[in-house]
Write a protein that binds this DNA or RNA. Sequence first.
DNA 1: AACGCTGCCTGGTCTAGACCACTCCGTTGC
DNA 2: GCAACGGAGTGGTCTAGACCAGGCAGCGTT
Lengths: 252, 252
Amino acid sequence: MGSNESVTVVEETTRHTLRARLRELVASTEVGKSLPSERDLSARWGVARMTIRRAVDALVAEGLVERRHGSGTYVTPQPFVRLLGLTSFSQDMRDRGLEPGARLLAYRVAPADAAISTQLHISAGDPVVSFTRLRLGSGEAMAVETVWIPQALVPGINGSDLGGSLYELLSSRYRISPGAANVSIEPVLPDERVRELLTISENQACLRIRMVDSDARGNIIMIANCFYRGDKYQLTAQVSGGAFSAEQSRNS
Amino acid sequence: MGSNESVTVVEETTRHTLRARLRELVASTEVGKSLPSERDLSARWGVARMTIRRAVDALVAEGLVERRHGSGTYVTPQPFVRLLGLTSFSQDMRDRGLEPGARLLAYRVAPADAAISTQLHISAGDPVVSFTRLRLGSGEAMAVETVWIPQALVPGINGSDLGGSLYELLSSRYRISPGAANVSIEPVLPDERVRELLTISENQACLRIRMVDSDARGNIIMIANCFYRGDKYQLTAQVSGGAFSAEQSRNS
DNA sequence: AACGCTGCCTGGTCTAGACCACTCCGTTGC
DNA sequence: GCAACGGAGTGGTCTAGACCAGGCAGCGTT
């Protein structure tokens, strides 16, 4: 098992190194300029061109870089074109090649008021842990989130646990695995407080995302209210066939 | 040259056929069951395994199918991110109990510029029908949309056809059925023109939604650029289990 | 000087095979 | 009966090379 792991680590490292080297290359390349050709990189780094291509594919998927058939691979003007997975902020940041972070702004345990208890499906007055965090990507403010969780689900939690991914904390310490989420998305102009936290101008729109997370059995775990910087977040979605069927069938 | 072209056509057809065959296979496979192995398909269809893999990659990206290392490739229970109300404006209005309507603001047929032709996967200069409509719900402005469609797909179309649902028109007259859409969503403060059309105040945010619609075979049908009133549109989405798995596996 | 051809360089696709890591199930040993 | 151990089959990754298709610049012709 030990040797097995070390092999894995080496491979992982190799793979990460390739992508990381490519990322560095992108970072050190002027926006709008082209990278060295795939064949060039392949020869220079001693790996097959297909391997280079797959690494480039990853950066293309992240929107860091853009291919032009017959011409070259170019550094994209604005790297923020990347989706929000809607699931985990930390994961999303890592996918973008940024270091996820969080700054705790408020933390409290209090009896649930009517609105919160209704949404969490608990009794009014039951203790609820709530906190507000500024979410960071490599130090830059990306979002402000406020989360409410029934205290019964997370005994012993405290503010110092909240420097990283909430999902990872819930999963590893409390064996709680979010199974589904209901998400509501709305464009808003944030108030001054949020605007200052996010360091955005007063005519920069945001996405307000409200989320209700459930576990695999449908029990509600938490609710969240988040403000995402509009200039950093473009949601992307793929709507597949079935969605159109209602309309189609109406014709027949 | 002629033979060259025919070869190209054959290759294109082969590629589409491969994905199409795979799609059929998925359609005829029970949800939760596994597809034949990649090696099996490779041998059966006489193409290299890497080629099969890339076709499967495409279906994975669409969420139709899911891979399990060491086990197999399985038909996904449901598309994991389902956005509600993003498909047909007319349908959405009816669902709200409002009368869908449209006011044509502009209509033109022109050669595609570089940006449009790239997105539509046609040649620059090919004729493209484009139009801008104000979408109404029982007379009230709800959204502004601009749509581009290759003229070749909609021969004989003209402005007077555009008073109602575009999807219904495409389906009934042209036998074009949207099979999937790629959607990008972004919060913005609209410019004055859009703001006046939508009769909203200057600090009301909007959703800018860009859409690329494809038919069942993956051919791109149209692209659209829409501004939806933020006070009338709250997107809702249901994210189900699989979306969290990337994060979970990172813990191990 | 303007045009058009041509060849090189780019990304795009495919191949046939190799090896690794993971799962799953049947077998073997206790 | 149960548990541990395989082996077979699966997806995951990589290779080295081939050919196709699009872009572009330089050269020649006009």
